[in-house]
Amino acid sequence: MKINSPLPRIMGALLITATITFHACMTVSYVGDRYQPTEQVDVYYAEKDVKTEYRVIGHLSEKVSGLKGEERAKQQIIAKCREVGADGVIILGFEYGGSKETEEYQKAQAIKYIE
């Protein structure tokens, strides 16, 4: 005898909704200027590595959490840089703070090349 239960479909829908909600809550904090969105953002880990003259157009911060949180935070920062029209991003490292002293944030600077 086969039982048709909507439970697997309901559980699947709840899982998808929870995943979307979780990712929607994670937003990059950005303060700075905005330009036309860019396709390519160069990633640097030290200011001295940027060989082209540039100016800082904004500062970014993203909370690090969950599995592969550091990589996810970096990708979110890069996506925000594309959105605000940055040519590059300098990943500055991590800072602890927030509502708990153990919350970890990835910090960065959005840069625009000077032509």
Rank of each mutant, 00 (worst) to 15 (best):
S5N: 09
N4H: 14
V56S: 14
D49G: 02
T102R: 11
M1E: 11
S65K: 05
I78N: 04
R55S: 07
P37S: 06
V89N: 04
D33G: 03
D87L: 01
A24F: 11
S29K: 15
Q36F: 04
S5W: 01
G85W: 07
G12V: 06
E95C: 00
K51V: 14
K68H: 12
E95N: 06
I57Q: 02
T38G: 01
K100M: 05
V31E: 12
Y35W: 04
A24Q: 10
E62W: 06
Q106P: 07
I3K: 10
I90H: 05
A46K: 15
A18W: 06
V31I: 08
E70V: 15
P6Y: 11
V28A: 01
I3Y: 11
G66Q: 04
L15T: 12
R82S: 15
E62Q: 15
E115C: 05
G97A: 00
T17S: 12
R72I: 13
G93T: 03
E70I: 15
L92C: 12
A79K: 13
P37F: 09
Y35I: 03
Q36K: 12
Y54V: 04
P6I: 12
E47A: 15
I57V: 11
I111C: 10
K48L: 04
Y45Q: 13
E62V: 12
G93L: 02
S29F: 13
E39C: 00
S61K: 14
Y44M: 02
Q40F: 08
F94Y: 15
A86H: 04
R82I: 10
I91R: 02
D87T: 01
I20V: 12
Y44N: 03
L15A: 14
V43L: 06
K100C: 02
I3M: 10
K100R: 10
Q106D: 06
A79Y: 02
G66L: 01
S99D: 07
Y113M: 06
G58Q: 04
E101Q: 09
E101P: 13
T21Q: 08
E71N: 14
E95D: 09
G85D: 03
A46V: 07
A73P: 13
A24P: 06
G88Q: 02
P37G: 06
V41H: 08
A13P: 00
D33T: 08
N4Y: 15
G88L: 00
T19C: 11
G93I: 01
E47R: 15
Y30C: 06
I78H: 06
C81G: 03
M11P: 00
F22D: 13
E70H: 14
D49V: 03
V64S: 15
P37R: 10
I78D: 04
K2L: 06
I91M: 14
S65D: 05
I78C: 04
L60G: 13
M1A: 09
E104C: 15
V43T: 05
C25P: 01
P8I: 01
Q76F: 01
G98C: 07
L92G: 12
F22P: 00
I20P: 00
I20F: 09
A13Q: 02
I3V: 13
Y54N: 07
R9H: 11
Y96L: 07
